[in-house]
Design a binder for these strands. Structure first.
Length: 293
DNA sequence: TATATTTGACCTTT
DNA sequence: AAAGGTCAAATATA
């Protein structure tokens, strides 16, 4: 693509960025859907890995080109509100209340986002469910969670949970933002949760490049509460060997049950150890107005 | 009583 | 207008 000599104008970059966001989204979903295929056919995994690598490189390239002062872009995430405390209005009212959709962030920051597959909703963090929505492209509703300490500690971590299309016993959990809270009740064993079971967690393959990217982003949800250098996180990630340790403790709290209709089945899964698989992750670089997703 | 979940309304973006 | 994300009243649970 264009080297440093000629720099594309901003609108062009915006467009590319938006498209990249869509590609990322699609690739992530594809990765989830193709999970079973990858086991039986390494070529599938290789292709996906290649795809992911290209996306990551392109993203990095794009980020290098501009600070991303773009339009709101993808509506997916980052809609963290600046205002709050407004009372609900019944039906029609003035337009003061700005709910839903995307809100802009005041300052540039790094929004971390990663998607994992898990048999349990208990990841050791304390979440508060604030919504559920039937999603067009999915048979299962999507649930929205924020950190319990959003207001008392201004912790902006969020997650979205959906049952996997290919396996209703598995959750697809998308984490957004970092936990900045320090909950004393927040399990020390969460630290062991950062122990993804090494290489084959990454569905797209084991290439060091991929792993490096993931290392950088994992702290979003699984790092020990105190942020440390990337290297520290890295060691947590790669050195840990079992996720079962973390899954043994699933009774610690009661997670919200998803669909009422399947609630019973799902609940029984909580005590059962399942794998925690990382499928895909992204680093979203936000600027004043835009975000890259 | 306090806290968490459910669920329809409401909001923004496309 | 549709889709997705969030709010908050009503309700459930500890």
């Amino acid at each position: 693509m264009a080297p440093s000599s000629t720099r594309p104008d901003t609108p062009a970059i915006d467009t590319v960025a938006k498209e990249m966001g869509k590609i990322c989204e699609s690739a992530a979903r594809l990765g989830v859907l193709l999970q079973p295929e990858i086991a039986g056919n390494p070529t599938v995994g290789a292709i996906l890995e290649e795809l992911q690598g290209s996306i990551l490189r392109a993203s990095a390239l794009l980020n290098g080109l501009t600070g991303f002062d773009t339009d709101p872009g993808s509506p997916s995430f980052g809609n963290l509100r600046e205002d709050s405390g407004k009372k609900r209005k019944i039906k029609s009212a003035d337009a003061g209340d700005r709910r839903g959709g995307c809100r802009r962030r005041a300052h540039s920051s790094l929004i971390l986002m990663n998607t994992v597959r898990a048999k349990t909703l208990d990841d050791g963090q304390t979440w508060r469910k604030y919504g559920q929505k039937q999603i067009q492209s999915s048979e299962h509703p999507r649930s929205y969670f924020r950190c319990t300490h959003k207001f008392d500690q201004n912790c902006m971590a969020q997650r979205q949970v959906q049952l996997a299309e290919d396996d209703p016993k598995t959750y697809v959990i998308t984490y957004m933002g970092e936990h900045t809270c320090r909950d004393p009740t927040m399990v020390p064993h969460i630290i062991s949760a950062s122990g993804f079971k090494g290489t084959n967690l990454i569905s797209f393959g084991n290439k060091s490049q991929t792993i490096r990217q993931i290392k950088a982003a994992v702290p979003a949800s699984f790092a020990p509460r105190k942020q440390e250098s990337d290297e520290e996180v890295v060691s947590n990630l790669t050195s840990a060997s079992s996720s079962s340790e973390y899954l043994q403790l699933t009774e610690a709290e009661k997670p919200a049950v998803m669909t009422p209709s399947t609630g019973g089945d799902v609940t029984s899964d909580f005590q059962y150890s399942g794998d925690l698989d990382m499928d895909f992750m992204r680093v979203l670089d936000l600027d004043d107005d835009g975000f890259f997703s």
